Simulated assay, not measured.
Amino acid sequence: MDWLFVPFEVSFVQRALWAGVLVSLICALAGTWVVLRGMAFLGDAMSHGMLPGVALAALLGGDLLLGAALSAGVMAFGVTALGRSQRLSRDTSIGLLFVGMLSAGVIIVSHSQSFAVDLTGFLFGDVLAVTAPELGKLAAALAVAVIVSLAGHRAFVALSFDPRKARTLGLRPGLANALLLGLVTLAIVASFRIVGTLLVFGLLIAPPAAAVLWAKRIPVVMAAAAVLGMAATAIGLLVSWHWGTAAGATIAATAVVLFFLSALGAELRDRVRAVPEKTNTEVEHAL
């Protein structure tokens, strides 16, 4: 059984595991709403919209996380502002901002010859290089995510299932939508350092999507998503250690595999349930 525990005796793998656990918890809180509200395209646009901020921060020698946060904030503000237009659909607004921000980022990157490694880290993450101060930042991000989730839970539920009822109940759906967008932004910014922007959806969407197939209550979905995300982190790091694969990509791929296993299990469950129902129906017709 040494193969199971030896990797986690190494300090940088331990930090990677803790980072993955913290990110899994953050993504479970935000990703559940992303799945329930069908916001996957928005999340994709938000993650790629961070590139200009990261590129500028790298060029100026600043904090990449701060650059990513500022850029994502601009993206979120743009989505909120354009979303008020009656002439443009939400998808059109998001798509235009997506292309604009990504193009700006690529233009900035193209003016530097030293971005090969940095850009690779931005796109695919570097979970094994996480430092103790970064773990502190992730813990702080998790605390903020928990506060926002608790404070906005009732409004988020109403917004997800009946926006008109949310307005009737005085829950201020506009503010709730902005808070939810901020929660998703926080999850993406916190996660990109771990698994990169191209792979962030492995932890943001796959665990909640897998949990939704089995649970009906939102808190249960969040809890199950957190467990699945942490399992994907541990398994991904273990596979990466023994097979020599990229850690961030392996974690994300493991999360997706767990989703498909969950979907397969849910399909088998539904078929098993359908057999007695079909039999009972045939008996009723016979009588």
Rank of each mutant, 00 (worst) to 15 (best):
S89D: 12
R90G: 01
R90Y: 07
D91Q: 07
T92D: 08
T92A: 13
I94G: 01
G95R: 11
G95C: 12
L96S: 08
L96A: 12
L96N: 06
L97R: 08
L97A: 03
L97K: 03
F98S: 01
F98L: 09
F98Q: 04
G100Q: 07
G100S: 12
M101W: 03
L102V: 00
L102S: 00
A104I: 09
G105P: 00
G105E: 03
V106W: 03
I107H: 04
I107Y: 02
I108M: 10
V109H: 08
S110V: 08
S110D: 11
S110E: 12
S110K: 07
H111A: 14
Q113C: 11
S114A: 15
S114M: 15
S114H: 15
F115S: 09
A116C: 03
V117I: 15
V117R: 15
V117S: 15
V117N: 15
D118L: 11
D118A: 14
D118V: 14
D118W: 13
D118N: 12
L119F: 13
T120Y: 02
T120L: 02
T120C: 03
G121H: 10
G121Y: 12
F122G: 00
F122Y: 06
L123R: 07
L123K: 03
F124P: 09
F124H: 06
G125V: 04
G125Q: 11
D126H: 09
D126T: 02
V127W: 08
V127D: 05
L128I: 12
L128P: 10
A129P: 12
V130I: 12
T131K: 15
T131N: 14
A132R: 14
A132E: 14
P133F: 09
E134H: 12
E134R: 09
L135N: 08
L135T: 01
L135K: 03
G136K: 10
G136E: 07
L138F: 13
L138D: 06
A139V: 04
A139P: 06
A140I: 01
A140Q: 09
A141L: 04
A141F: 11
L142G: 07
L142V: 00
A143Q: 11
V144A: 15
V144K: 10
V144S: 13
V146D: 00
V146I: 14
V146G: 05
V148M: 10
V148Q: 04
V148K: 03
V148G: 05
S149N: 14
S149P: 14
S149E: 10
L150D: 00
L150S: 02
L150W: 02
L150A: 11
A151S: 15
G152D: 04
G152S: 09
H153G: 07
R154E: 06
A155L: 08
F156L: 05
F156R: 00
F156W: 13
F156C: 01
V157Y: 09
V157P: 06
A158R: 00
A158E: 01
L159I: 05
S160M: 09
F161V: 13
F161L: 14
P163E: 02
P163R: 04
R164V: 05
K165C: 11
K165P: 04
K165V: 07
K165L: 10
A166S: 13
R167K: 10
R167E: 03
T168N: 06
T168P: 04
L169T: 03
L169A: 05
L171D: 00
R172Q: 10
R172C: 07
R172L: 06
